[in-house]
Amino acid sequence: MSGHQHQSHQGERLVDAAKARLTETGEQWTGMREAVFEALASFDRPASAYDIAEAVSTAQGRRVAANSVYRILDLFVGANLAMRVESANAYVANSHPGCLHDCIFLICDQCGQAKHIDDDRLTEGVRAAAEKSGFAPTKPVIEVRGTCESCS
Rank of each mutant, 00 (worst) to 15 (best):
E38P: 11
Q10L: 05
S133W: 04
S2N: 12
Q110V: 13
N94A: 09
Y50I: 06
N80P: 08
G11T: 10
A65G: 05
V64I: 08
A90L: 06
N80W: 04
R63T: 10
D120K: 14
Q113E: 10
G78S: 13
L73R: 08
A35I: 02
L22P: 13
G26H: 03
R127K: 10
Q113D: 12
L106A: 04
G3N: 05
L81W: 09
Y91T: 01
V144S: 02
G112M: 02
E124Q: 10
R33P: 15
E12P: 10
G98S: 12
L106W: 07
S68F: 10
E38M: 12
L22R: 05
Q110W: 04
L100M: 09
L122M: 14
T23L: 06
S87D: 06
N89Y: 13
A18W: 02
T25F: 07
D118W: 11
G31P: 15
F105Y: 08
S133L: 11
S87F: 08
C111H: 01
T23S: 12
G112C: 06
R84P: 01
S42Q: 07
L81C: 12
Q60G: 06
R33Y: 06
N80A: 08
L81N: 11
C103Q: 06
F76G: 01
S95M: 07
H116Q: 10
A82S: 05
T123I: 12
E27G: 15
N89H: 15
T138R: 14
G98P: 13
V126Y: 09
V56D: 09
S57N: 08
T147Y: 00
I117Y: 06
A18N: 06
E34C: 01
V15Q: 03
D102Q: 14
L100Q: 12
D118N: 13
H6F: 10
S48C: 13
A128F: 09
M32C: 08
S95V: 14
L122V: 11
Q60H: 09
R71V: 07
G146L: 00
V36P: 07
A136T: 06
D51K: 05
D102V: 07
A39I: 07
A82F: 05
Y91E: 00
E12L: 11
K132I: 02
V144P: 00
Y91K: 02
S95Q: 10
A18K: 04
A129D: 10
G98Q: 12
F135Y: 14
A90C: 05
T30C: 07
N94W: 03
E38T: 12
Q60C: 03
Q60W: 07
T23H: 06
R121D: 06
Q113A: 12
A114H: 11
N94K: 11
Q10W: 07
C108V: 08
H101T: 09
D120F: 14
E24V: 14
F43M: 01
A49M: 06
D120G: 15
D120S: 15
D109R: 02
L22D: 10
H4M: 05
P46D: 00
D44W: 07
L73H: 07
R33L: 00
I104E: 01
I142P: 03
R127D: 03
K139F: 13
P46F: 00
E149V: 11
S42F: 00
H116R: 15
E24G: 15
H4R: 11
F76A: 01
H101P: 07
G146H: 01
